[in-house]
Design a protein around this nucleic acid. Structure first.
Lengths: 327, 327
DNA sequence: CTTGTTGTTGAAATGCATTTCATAAATATC
DNA sequence: GATATTTATGAAATGCATTTCAACAACAAG
């Protein structure tokens, strides 16, 4: 930097100002410095900058690859979220640190934060570790979470209205006069539990509706398929309505049930979740609950920026919609 | 750090050594320093460290969200790749910087590299910008690329054997005595072009086989669906074999053709690509080419480490396999 | 013509950990 | 017991950019 300064006949601070886009330099000087920097092949050292500025200019995005790898909650949908976040951060000139290791404990978060590895965190999906997240939030670490939105939460969360999603299905099944319902999903995940609760909204009060749960052990596609298959074999009365926690799971169910001659929509209604592209073109096409993934990423980032500004943004719930198709 | 040193009655260098895991400290001192650091809530400043060490300890992973968002080449499969990379980097204690902005030009890469934002790059999919990547490689920037493997390439690439994938389909279609083939995919993508070439291996020499191409304009699911639909409507003789560049695209084709009463496997053979989970349970289940995504991420990282060590690792091609199903 | 204001620029202090080199102490070797 | 070697530790130099504060110039207002 000193070299550039000397050659451009200015001082170090001026070079710094030019290169970090400060408006406190005359246009003339700026040009000169820029020219010299370019011809000398000089680039600011980001770490020196981050050290001095005392901020990382980076956000850590935490993804539970372990469970998503097998098509977990998310299907392509987590990917969309990630794309949205990446874009929103990019606009603000913030780096995106993907799933740094060590974030399995509160100390992991504290350490990454204190060592200035990241200015804040975006966590995608509470999964089954909400307790951990609550603890992290209590340590005053800037964060926002994609997932279930709850009143009691210590942190700001953004998520789809899972309960509404469930209710929409509840209504649909009742309208179709279905009586033996099956919910497919792991209620240990808060988001999924809310969908299940939504499903019970009106049904709970009715004596003639019976809701069974097929609790998914593994998120793997074939595991779901096998479990669904086993379920049907073990039961004489078959469900006449199925609500699956994801479209992918819905596909697994269709396949497994079809093997036993139990066909949708002839024998049962089926609703999935996420509205992934193939759902529309599956045979039969899958009725599903769509989430607004498009805006989600941007919203998460915006909320986090507010947290970084010292504010306490409210959690937000994005609407969900029933997309009616053949099943 | 000075405070910790004072309280633990050692010097700064010793604290540094303890906290960065150097073996040049006695066990006794180590314990003491660690205890003090913990109780004082002290964490190393990563940027000071990176500044001094003159390396970022971070790898930038470049993803073309723009095209993947719509289910591009990849489907869930890019996600698997990313998971593998994340894991492999994590083991080596390297940060993963996801798709930093500015990497649309050579200067973008040079700048990020020179400013020590990243020690190296992993690029997922050449897409249509191979020229750019070649230029970047010539600037001696450490990088590896997932995609088409070519002899002429300046950089180290890891990818599936796309040509083999195509050949497998070629053989299958010939064995089934198919005569009017249709390839669905955008040959501007090198990887996809190779698949197309593979498809022609034996067919090219035969006068009785005719291969048409439906060049995909947008990677969006519904766009493919519409294009496929339009294609069929415009042609009196229908294809009796279709090779689609991805399983997702295959699903789109099945849906579109079914609308016109053209059904697989009754009327035509169909092979997809990637072997995504739903492919096995789609109705009909989709014959496809499987790639070894599991090892890909780890391999990419390993190659990059070699590049960083100053070596010039050979490109690698992973085997592909035909998975025979109903279509 | 003087005082006040705005716009540019530079000197020096600051953010923090690592590494080289040297020293001191402890152990091993002859 | 003397020399060589290893082990543990510290002083000082180093990596690099930013920011405060002051200074100066140029211009406007009175």
């Amino acid at each position: 930097m000193e070299d550039v300064a000397r050659i451009a006949k200015v001082s170090k601070p001026t070079v710094s100002r030019v290169l970090s886009g400060s408006p406190l330099v005359s246009a003339e000087t700026r040009e000169r410095v820029l020219a010299v920097a370019r011809e000398q092949g000089y680039a600011l050292n980001r770490h020196a900058q981050k050290l001095r500025r005392e901020r990382a200019n980076a956000i850590a995005v935490v993804l539970d690859f372990g469970s998503h790898r097998q098509g977990a909650i998310g299907d392509p949908f987590i990917f969309e979220l990630l794309a949205g976040i990446s874009e929103a951060l990019s606009v603000r000139d913030l780096d995106l640190l993907l799933s740094p290791s060590g974030l399995e404990t509160v100390e992991g978060f504290v350490d990454l934060y204190q060592s200035r590895g990241a200015d804040g965190f975006i966590i995608l999906g509470q999964g089954t570790r909400d307790a951990l997240l609550q603890k992290v939030a209590r340590r005053n670490i800037p964060m926002v979470v994609w997932g279930a939105v709850s009143e009691a939460s210590t942190y700001c969360a953004v998520g789809s209205d899972n309960s509404l999603g469930g209710r929409l299905v509840d209504e649909r099944f009742l309208a179709h006069e279905r009586r033996r319902w099956l919910f497919v999903g792991d209620c240990q995940h808060e988001e999924i539990r809310l969908r299940f609760e939504g499903l019970q909204t009106a049904a709970r009060a009715r004596k003639d509706v019976e809701i069974d749960v097929l609790s998914i052990e593994s998120m793997a596609f074939s595991a779901i398929h096998d479990q669904a298959n086993a379920y049907l074999k073990a039961r004489p009365e078959r469900p006449d309505a199925v609500f699956a926690f994801s479209d992918t799971a819905a596909m697994a169910v269709i396949g497994a049930f079809a093997k036993e001659g139990h066909l949708t929509p002839r024998d049962y209604s089926l609703v999935g979740y996420n509205d992934i592209p193939p759902a529309a073109h599956f045979t039969p096409s899958i009725t599903t609950i769509a989430q607004q993934t498009g805006v989600a990423g941007a919203l998460l980032v915006e909320k986090l920026m507010q947290v970084l500004d010292g504010r306490r943004p409210r959690s937000a719930m994005l609407p969900t919609q029933l997309v009616t198709r053949q099943t």
